[in-house]
Design a protein around this nucleic acid. Structure first.
Lengths: 201, 201
DNA sequence: GTTGGCATGTAACTGGTTACATGATTAG
DNA sequence: CTAATCATGTAACCAGTTACATGCCAAC
């Protein structure tokens, strides 16, 4: 398996895309991968130094005027490490931390109106993110002609996912507002016993 | 905004559902919220003690035989904190960390076959998770009749999301295998310049 | 002249995982 | 008798965020 630290992965990838300084890497992350992969200065700068010590990147001082500025690039070893990671299919990391889902999970504690409010809020949040993605789309699509196809493909995933999530919450909210149940019990017995069964205790 | 730590949120929610020991909380998390909210013993036990000091939960020694065993329950203050958090809509946390998306993002560095392999792998992984969710479905659905509706609703979200993700990767893989492009350029000029434009550098 | 962006960095902290340790009980 | 599971906990570590600090440069 790849021995690169999480932050090293974005860094090497960004260097390969021609992003050269720690500052720029952070900037590019913040309008591209940020929705599924972030990094802060507090990680990027130390990691660049570690990568340099490990021989995966080389550093060059290229000051702009009197502002010191370190330009990084991949060494052959770094290129190899990047490629190895990109093609390594042992255990791929996938993590979601979604507080709204956790709240949904516990929503039997809430009144119908409270649940509706939460669902509508989620609909709105995902809608806003979707809008942000749409704004990105133009710029990212321009990159396609220059060979940066996959950032656009990844963005498509984001657009579709956000659309799915927004619509899912909207639909559940709509049903609750219409007085429908979110879950229909198939079995008649349980269906007759409907309504106000409190949780276990 | 809610001042509960991330781990405190699941704990209070689980206590309200009638899960009483640190051990049980961990067990229940591991087959329910784990896909969008985890916690380890290293967090749960210390957090239970903190919550007790803060007066949100009370602890009672209920040994089973000679095995010491601490049963926790919510105090009125804890109930209030839980409800406040569940209805607090200031800034809700949503985080994804998806390495496969990051790799997709950088996939212009890879050959078509390598990309296909990655996409197929993702399809498979999401398919497996989907199966796991389907296995959970029966048990979780039984809870609905006892008033635990929303765990099942949350699971529905999971099922639909996994289906979406699996199919998305499958479709992209299919297209690449069929020799289609993942992105059609609208503009003719760029379309003629197709193929092998390396990234920026 | 002052705001904002370029550029780099560090220290303190938080949140979380992993591995380890202990010991009782139950099921086979 | 022994493996699995119940039950609790800690220490070491890792990853990551936030806030702070510095100083130059360009634009208004």
């Amino acid at each position: 398996m790849s021995s690169l630290t999480p932050t090293a992965r974005v860094i090497l990838g960004m260097l390969k895309l021609g992003v050269t300084t720690g500052y720029d890497i952070k900037k590019v992350i913040d309008f591209s991968t940020r929705f599924f992969w972030t990094a802060s200065y507090g990680q990027i700068y130390p990691e660049l130094k570690r990568l340099r010590k490990a021989g995966l990147v080389r550093a060059e001082q290229v000051p702009r005027g009197k502002v010191k500025r370190t330009v990084y690039s991949l060494t052959p070893k770094g290129e190899r490490a990047l490629h190895d990671w990109l093609t390594d299919n042992q255990e791929v990391l996938f993590e979601i931390r979604d507080e709204s889902l956790l709240r949904l999970f516990f929503s039997d504690q809430l009144s119908r109106d409270e649940v509706i409010a939460n669902l509508r809020m989620q609909e709105q949040i995902f809608g806003l993110v979707l809008e942000r993605f749409r704004e990105l789309e133009v710029g990212v699509k321009e990159g396609v002609a220059e060979g940066r196809v996959y950032p656009y493909v990844a963005l498509q995933y984001g657009l579709e996912f956000m659309t799915f999530a927004r619509d899912w919450y909207a639909e559940k909210a709509r049903r609750l507002e219409a007085g429908e149940e979110l879950v229909e019990l198939e079995d008649d017995e349980a269906a007759r016993g409907e309504a106000r069964l409190g949780p276990a205790g």
